[in-house]
């Protein structure tokens, strides 16, 4: 009898918290704009690798639109240059945006093939960053965008570790995690994300996966599409057409 009471006591010690029961709904958020229903949308992006010219306009535009620090260590989007050499070795570098810096002109005779690959947050269907956030500061909206609540984020950086694509960084001033939002403030008002807006070759295609007429659905119909790191089963919503096998 005594023993049972003791155990009872121990169990009571477990901190009982309300949110244990009001179990965090993964997707939430009300309609922010009059007449806009997030349940009717699901955003994604297509990237036509063969169209990217590596000009870096998207990187600059993103930094301007979203107040991303100008330093090259903090990127919501960036562009990688791949060079496959004749000996099958692969060299990769990030495209720099400052015009004064001379481009590292690769030795042409040595090139087997070469191309640019734009990267950004994949807005995964099963985002590992959302799974690991200890305080629920990062979450998926009903229209499929992963956002960070910078008023709640404690800056533990577990999400940065958990992201397989290196899409997150710690904002140096806010000291909280930051990442691409698909320019959420633009897309809910019917505008395109800044990077898509300025892309001169339309290598980036933004659209609504729930609308049959959207550019993105057309892109998926017309191309062989692939996502990054499919084996990790995060189900990205950034789709690449004719992606080369060396891209990681």
């Amino acid at each position: 009898m005594k023993r049972r009471d003791l155990l009872k006591n121990l169990i009571v010690f477990l901190p009982v918290s309300r949110s244990f029961f009001s179990c965090a709904a993964q997707a939430s958020g009300t309609a922010p704009i009059q007449g806009y229903d997030p349940d009717n949308h699901l955003y994604g992006m297509g990237i036509e690798v063969s169209k990217c010219i590596g000009c870096g306009k998207c990187i600059e535009a993103c930094k301007t639109e979203n107040n991303v620090p100008q330093e090259p260590f903090f990127c919501r989007t960036w562009v990688e240059r791949y060079i496959v050499r004749n000996d099958k070795s692969v060299a990769v570098e990030t495209v720099r945006t400052t015009q004064k810096e001379t481009r590292a002109a690769p030795n042409e005779k040595d090139i087997l093939r070469s191309f640019f690959v734009p990267k950004l947050c994949n807005q995964c269907e099963h985002p590992p960053c959302v799974q690991v956030c200890p305080v629920g500061a990062t979450f998926q909206t009903r229209d499929g965008v992963v956002l960070v609540d910078s008023d709640r984020c404690i800056g533990c950086r577990y999400c940065i570790q958990a992201c397989p694509f290196g899409a997150r960084y710690l904002h140096p001033e806010k000291r909280t995690a930051d990442k691409c939002t698909f320019c959420y403030h633009r897309v809910v008002k019917g505008l395109l994300p800044a990077c898509v807006e300025v892309c001169p070759t339309q290598a980036r295609i933004f659209g609504d996966l729930k609308s049959k007429a959207s550019q993105l659905v057309r892109f998926q119909r017309m191309n062989n599409v692939h996502v990054l790191k499919p084996h990790l089963n995060t189900e990205p919503k950034v789709y690449y057409s004719d992606l080369d096998g060396v891209v990681t």
Binding site: S28, G136, R152, Y184, H185
Partner: peptide, 25 residues
Amino acid sequence: LTSTKLHRELTVTAETEKPIRFAGS
């Protein structure tokens, strides 16, 4: 401080209200 749902709604609103820099073509 305690409501996850409330916090997410506020975040979506705050995100939506961010200023637009690129007007669109």
